[in-house]
Amino acid sequence: MPDVLPLPGLFGLCYLAFAALALTVERHWRDLVDSRRGPPRRTVFRLRLAALLCIAAALSVAVRHEGAGFGILLWALALSAGALAVSATIAWRTRSARG
């Protein structure tokens, strides 16, 4: 992993991971992608795989940049921050649709 902007990279990866996971939730898929039907099985599998890879990559970035102790702590908290940011995004995107 290149040494540029490890911190935004870490938060970005966590955000991407939870964004992918959020799309596997039927409610959000219908709201954001296709209102007629839920996510196809293969897509769900791929999204989950992508999320897993992002989370693993985030851990690797955090541990490389901060060392094991601080890295794991920062990674665990960044996951929460990413998840909160994803739900804020979803609330913002769907609010305009529902008023």
Partner: peptide
């Protein structure tokens, strides 16, 4: 089932519960 859901519109009680659940689950590790 409603992971990541925060319905800030409509019923006040539902928004409260969404926010309660979101902070409760997403920040649970901390």
């Amino acid at each position: 089932k409603d992971f990541f859901t925060f319905r800030s519109w409509g019923q006040f009680r539902r928004s409260l519960l969404d926010l309660h659940n979101l902070t409760g689950v997403l920040v649970l590790p901390f």
